[in-house]
Computed example of a mutant assay.
Amino acid sequence: MQSFLADDREALHVAITGDGRPMVLLHGWTATHRDWKPFVSTFGASHRVFRWDARGHGGHPLATGQAPTVERMARDLENLMAHWDLQDAVVIGHSMGALTLWQYLRDFGTKRLSHVVFIDQSPRLLTDEHWSNGIYGDFDSERNASFVSDLEQDFAETVLRLVANGLNERGRRKYIENGTGMQMARERLRALDPAPLIACWKSLTAADYRQVLGRIDVPALLIYGEESNFYTSNTARWVRDAIPGAQMHVYDGVDHAPHLWQAERFLHDVLGFVGAECDESCAMCA
């Protein structure tokens, strides 16, 4: 891991691999740069790959006390790209990473970017009487307030229930069965400092990027899970139609992390989208 200082003097940690056109990978809420490990070798054959631990994530205590709001994380992304003088970059955001990228586009535009990829996300998480394309299709401000209260009482279990109580029946069964994987996830979440992550969640659920989508002027690729825990096919279609010229792939039978469940397809789709080629390890290109 390398590190750089953001403009508020917070040290941010980044893993850098490969050579070529820059590619920046933005993970989801409560996750780390390690989530992208399955893709590093193939992406690194044609790109210089940057995988950060977003502010407040990855087990790095905050030195400045500046909460990891989505606005601050978008500025951190600009700081990262300025620090390494990245131009013509491909930026891929999953979940929170997609929201961070939309905020970045709002605040800094596309001057450093060549392509953008958004994985299984809605531009507005909370629902209301005029918007049903957020979490579950019915996660309104009252429901979110109750969720935040639960996070403050038992962070790990509340995060697990957010996934389990969603639209994916297999996710619900896994939670009830409480197997080894679920227990490991619980222990990982219990090891995190909840305060900055709760502040981050409040920021994410306050954001609304619906007006940003129509102003995206670089090629955009959308990847959605057919059985996402959080979003219906209506959300995917709405985002596709809102971004000029966007391409979209829906991965059958998988949840909120379609890229992890169908990694070979994801590599093939992304590298084809940006005009690169898979290496010999890609089964879909063999």
Rank of each mutant, 00 (worst) to 15 (best):
F230M: 13
T127K: 09
L26M: 14
T180D: 13
A220H: 02
L221N: 01
Y175I: 04
P194C: 08
L62C: 06
L192P: 03
P196Y: 13
M96Q: 10
L271M: 05
A63F: 04
T205I: 15
T205V: 15
M96L: 10
R172K: 14
S46H: 15
G275K: 13
L113N: 02
F266G: 00
K202A: 12
S141Q: 13
V40D: 10
A199M: 15
V117I: 11
I135L: 13
A286S: 04
Y251C: 01
A6L: 04
D140A: 14
L221E: 01
A11F: 10
N133M: 11
D138T: 11
G272I: 03
G20C: 12
V24R: 00
A98N: 05
I216G: 03
D88Y: 09
L189V: 02
H115G: 06
F139W: 05
E71Q: 15
Q103T: 06
A242S: 14
C278T: 02
E157G: 07
G214I: 03
H268T: 14
M96K: 00
L213V: 06
P123T: 13
D88G: 07
L213M: 14
L213D: 01
N79R: 08
A11Y: 02
V212Q: 12
S233R: 04
D19W: 01
T30V: 14
E169V: 09
D241F: 07
T64M: 04
A185N: 10
M1F: 05
F108C: 07
L221T: 01
A283Q: 10
V250R: 03
G59C: 13
M23I: 01
V116H: 05
W36R: 08
L113S: 04
D19E: 15
A54G: 11
A286I: 00
S46A: 15
A11Q: 13
R75C: 11
G137F: 03
V159L: 09
N178L: 03
T42H: 06
N165I: 12
N144R: 05
V40P: 02
A89L: 06
R112H: 14
L26N: 09
M81C: 07
D154H: 14
W238V: 07
I223Y: 05
G166S: 07
I119K: 03
F230I: 06
D269R: 01
R240M: 11
Q2L: 06
L192R: 05
A191I: 10
S146E: 11
Y136R: 09
R124T: 07
F266E: 00
I223P: 00
R210S: 13
D193Y: 02
E277N: 10
N144V: 06
D7E: 13
S122H: 08
L62E: 01
Q247W: 11
A54K: 00
E78H: 13
Q211G: 11
A11R: 14
D208C: 11
L151Q: 00
S141G: 09
Q262N: 15
H115E: 05
